[in-house]
Design a protein around this nucleic acid. Structure first.
Lengths: 156, 156
DNA sequence: CTGCGTGCAAAAACTTTGCAACAAT
DNA sequence: ATTGTTGCAAAGTTTTTGCACGCAG
C-alpha cells in the first residue's frame, strides 16, 4: 500500500506541476501532511491523517488537513471514498494499481481486488453512452467468510 | 422509475414480514413516507422525501423521515448511495432492475445503466474471496457527451 | 396495557469558512 | 511586497438522540 521512493518522486512532480499551474505554494504543513499520507496505508479519514500528523507536529490544525486532502483529491493524487460510515476516506491514487472493494457489512472489513476484465467492460459501457470516463468506484457489500461462519454458528 | 401496483404489493409483503420479525409497528407516518418514496423517482435525499411528505402532512418531522429511510435501507427495500455531495441519497431497491451509474463530473448528470455480464463477474470475484454479496454499487465518473462537446468548443 | 414511534429540540459528527497573523515566492 | 496559507473559532450541514407524549397491537 505504501508508496515507493520512485513513486513518491513521480508524485512530487505531478503535485509540483499542479501547484505551479495555479500559483499554489508549498508549505511546511502541506509537505508534512502529504509525506505522511503517502506513507500510510488503508482508507484514511481526515481524523486518521490528522492524528498521524500531530505526532510529528502537534500544531497543525484539522482545517489544514481538510484543505490538503481536498487538494490531493482535486489534483488526482488521492481518491476520496465514501463507504457509508459518515466520513470521507482517502487513499493514494498514484503508485498503485487501480482496485475495487469488497466490504463486509457486519465487521467492516475491506478487501481490495482488481479485475481487468471488469474494467474493460466498464469502459465499453461508458463508450456506448458517449461518456469519457476518468475514474470509477465499485464496491461489493456483503458478508465476509468469517462473519458468515459466525452467523451460522449462532444459528442466525 | 416509479414502482408499479404489483411491485408495491410485493414490497408491502417484504416490509410487513421484516417489521413483524422484529416487532416493529406500522404507523400513519411510516406508511405515508414509504408510499410517497416509492412513488418518486431519482436519487432522493432525506430532504427531498421530507418536502414531498410535508405536502401531504406538514406535521411529520425530519427525524421520522431519517428513521424511516434507515428502516427501508436496512430492510433492503431501498439502497443508500453517496455520490460525493455531502448527502445520503436513497432509491427504491424493489421493482427495478439493478443498475449502476455514469456520473458527469461537470454537469452532475446521472445516467443509469445495467450490464448483466459485469454483475456476473462481480459475483465471481466475490465468491473467489469467500464473500457473500448482498448488494453493490458501481459508479463511473467522467464527462458526458454534451460536456465533452462544450469543453472542445471552449478550446479547453 | 405495553412498548414502539413521533415530534421537538438539543447535540453530535463532519466539514467549511472568515479573519488576522504568517510565510513563501 | 504580494499573495497564498495557517490556526482558530465560529458557523454550516447532515444526521442522530433523549425525552415526554401518543398511538398501534
Amino acid at each position: 500500500m505504501t508508496v515507493t521512493a520512485a513513486q513518491r518522486e513521480e508524485l512530487g512532480r505531478i503535485l509540483d506541476r499542479y501547484m505551479a499551474e495555479r500559483g499554489l505554494k508549498s508549505t511546511r504543513q502541506r509537505s508534512l501532511i502529504i509525506d505522511l499520507f503517502f506513507g500510510m496505508h488503508g482508507h484514511l479519514s481526515v481524523e486518521d491523517v490528522w492524528s498521524r500528523v500531530r505526532q510529528d507536529d502537534p500544531r497543525v490544525s484539522v482545517a489544514t488537513v481538510y484543505r490538503t486532502m481536498k487538494l490531493l483529491s482535486e489534483s488526482g493524487l488521492a481518491h476520496a471514498r465514501n463507504f457509508g460510515d459518515g466520513q470521507t476516506r482517502y487513499e493514494p491514487a498514484v503508485g498503485r494499481e487501480h482496485h475495487d472493494h469488497l466490504i463486509c457489512t457486519r465487521c467492516g472489513a475491506i478487501i481490495e481486488f482488481e479485475n481487468d476484465q471488469i474494467e474493460r467492460m466498464q469502459d465499453a459501457v461508458a463508450r456506448r453512452h458517449g461518456f469519457k470516463v476518468t475514474s470509477h468506484k465499485m464496491e461489493l457489500y456483503g458478508l465476509c467468510k468469517s462473519c458468515q461462519k459466525l452467523l451460522v454458528e449462532q444459528g442466525v
